[in-house]
Design a protein around this nucleic acid. Sequence first.
DNA 1: CGGCATCCGTGATGATACTG
DNA 2: CAGTATCATCACGGATGCCG
Lengths: 122, 122
Amino acid sequence: MARIPHETFDCAVGCSVEATLNLIGGKWKGVILYRLLAEQVLRFNELRRFLPNITQRMLTNQLRELERDGLVARKVYAEVPPKVEYRLTAHGQTLAPVIAALKQWGDAHIEDGTIKVPTEAG
Amino acid sequence: MARIPHETFDCAVGCSVEATLNLIGGKWKGVILYRLLAEQVLRFNELRRFLPNITQRMLTNQLRELERDGLVARKVYAEVPPKVEYRLTAHGQTLAPVIAALKQWGDAHIEDGTIKVPTEAG
DNA sequence: CGGCATCCGTGATGATACTG
DNA sequence: CAGTATCATCACGGATGCCG
């Protein structure tokens, strides 16, 4: 995928498209957001189970970015063993139509074979 | 944003979201698609004018990927000076709702200040 | 369990110069 | 005009190991 530095940003009119992509375009953010949209609340390792190939580091990373961008909320329980829950913020919830559009398009064109997803886990 | 290698791909259910993002998530693809959606046909340097900070190399690159993915058609005129036109394919046109969703969300949240676009050209 | 720190490779992106 | 070629950089992302 194309690496998109978070600070780097420059385009003319139509930027809003890129602005949005910059938030959800991370390598795993689409799936993360999608899962959180579907499951509401997920713990770290639950999330991990949905992303078979993601490394711990990257999952943490992507979650932190989503958190920083105000899309995901992180709730830590002062327990042993540790327990951390992730859920969408109200702001994050507003992405629902966007994610839906992405998914709908993807589904449609995966079906008709126009695009491909490497058989891996999905 | 995160760079999204085209071949890399692996996720569980919900992949279609990522599959779509892998096609349009390139650093400049959003704007390119948006512009082509709006203007219908654009020449190389016209496109460039819309992307003030893109390098020639990257524009070529992104266009080739979009072409490879069947979203954009490239039409070369055997003229002097050279003339090349880019437009969306029928397949590319189907992205309209997706781009619209991205733009709408971006616009809405840029307005209310929830997200920011570095003032550059847009 | 849910991280964080470190080392490190690869490839995406950029700058510059040249060509048909 | 519309690229291609080459070189340099550095963010992204993987692997591993330690911690509360």
